[in-house]
Design a protein around this nucleic acid. Structure first.
Lengths: 151, 151
DNA sequence: CCGTTAATGATATTTATTTTCAACTACGGT
DNA sequence: ACCGTAGTTGAAAATAAATATCATTAACGG
């Protein structure tokens, strides 16, 4: 789990016989400039880039989000909606987890270094190379506890 | 996070003006009798019940898996595949987390009570009612580290 | 500056999941 | 035990996220 620069991404791509492209650089920079706690779905990102006048095809976006998640550059989040969301994967002081209300999807981010340590140690013990470590707490928020009706 | 009996499920359903059905009891019992570490997708469960001669419609299965996950009876897992999987949600000594290879999807289960405690404390601090707490470690397994080619 | 080959992007396709709706049934009340 | 209401089921249709296809483009090593 390292902070990536465009040139670091390029180097790692080349290591595997792959190529750096303007699209990949745009996607990386977009996530790096996103405020903490902001995460985007593939469509969110597509819309955002269109607005900014640097549109990228949706299939290219899907391909590269998955690629960069598998490289450990992005975190792939499943925040109780029906689609995946992504955010940049930052090391220790920025690294955080999610407390999610399963009814209204309200999400609170929180930090906890001991969990990250557990994750790192567990991966190491099994010889796995750590990419991301996320604690997801599924719960019911105070507001939804009060509303009796829906589940 | 409690262990559910069919009658406890019935009671909680009635609290909300809902009904117990044979289908719901079948689904609950099926997950309770599943060996530890086994998780099922909606289609897996549908096939399994068909084999056992107690078929349930797929839409009913989808509805009740989601319902029981939102009640905290089942855990909804996202194990790097394209579909959700479910397992019974058991308390402390059985509670576990997942170490997942993002390339081949090989998954290792592991236990760690301190993580569960962090989850419980975090939920409580924000007034959330805890349903489930899962640490997902995304990593590359030793075998996939050796194979240079695909990501 | 080429040639190879990976990458892009518009489109078509797949597939998990949700919605619809008529028929059914759980269960509270009588 | 029997009704009536209203939640539930399930087959089929619809939705939507994600992937595959493939002709065109472009990265980059030589």
């Amino acid at each position: 789990m390292v902070a990536y620069s465009p040139s670091a991404l390029k180097a790692e791509l080349h290591e595997r016989g792959w190529r750096m492209t303007p699209q990949r650089e745009t996607i990386l920079k977009t996530f790096q400039n996103l405020p903490e706690g902001r995460h985007l779905s593939a469509e969110d990102l597509c819309d955002l880039l269109k607005e900014e006048g640097a549109p990228i095809g949706l299939s290219t976006i899907y391909r590269n989000l998955k690629l960069m998640a598998r490289m450990g550059i992005l975190r792939e989040l499943e925040l109780a909606e029906d689609q995946k969301r992504y955010e940049i994967n930052r090391p220790a002081p920025h690294h955080h987890h999610h407390l999610i209300c399963v009814r209204c999807n309200k999400t609170i981010e929180f930090k906890n270094d001991s969990v990250l340590k557990v994750g790192a140690k567990t991966a190491e013990k099994s010889g796995y190379q750590l990419l991301d470590c996320q604690l997801s707490i599924h719960a019911v928020c105070p507001t939804c506890q009060r509303s009796i009706l829906p589940i």
